[in-house]
Amino acid sequence: MVNNLIPSIAIVLSLTNKRVVIVGAGGLGGPISYGLAACACHLTLCDNDTVALSNLHRQIQFQLSDIGTLKTTALCNTLIQRGINADKLIHHAIRCTADNTDLWLDGADLIIDASDNFETKFMVNDLSVAAQIPCLITSSLRYCGQILAVIPGKTGCYRCLFEAPPHNEFIDNCNTGGIVGAVLAIVAGIAVQQAQQLLTNDYTDAGTLFHFDNLEETITPRKIQFEQRHDCLACGDRS
């Protein structure tokens, strides 16, 4: 028991001055923020959406009385009610873009994409590479989950693997494709593990896409390794 707790204390001490920007305060942003707040990280939470009834089957940080409230406000309130110091939390009711980084990227040691759209995932990746800040891109849909940690200059990036957002007619999200909430717990847990690694300069899992799309694979996700592409528009030498 004691041996298991020692690494946790060491991790908390090493993360206490780190700032993590979480883009999205929904089904992934909620449990990810619980995990990182428990490690004493400073958090910047960004989302321009409000809580809706259809969120509650998977966004466990909200309750009925939050409907209509900004997700960032409701999530911050929940974190404070869990004992997190309000001084550690910054929240912005904005849609993060490359044009308003002065509002949300300041002081970031790590950016986590917990959004529900490809445009934002590629934007986070490209900004991460340009600003040389590590990022985690997380995704979930139906029974599937994906997590990719990117270390600019050391690993391939999201654009090395996927090149560009898919055409609109091929895009599904939770609204159109559905989602089982428990999938989000698994993705969030893996994301918090990898965030702790990145923030302590452990690059074991960086540059490898973790992917699962059935129950068995949640126990041992597929690990898809790939090289940095020299012609990548974000991180290649032709960029």
Partner: peptide, 20 residues
């Protein structure tokens, strides 16, 4: 489990199994 992240993964797997 001793951390939230481990509890999320293990609890999520079991919840998914029961729901399925």
């Amino acid at each position: 489990t001793h951390t939230i992240q481990d509890a999320l993964i293990l609890g999520g797997q079991h919840a998914l199994s029961v729901i399925t």
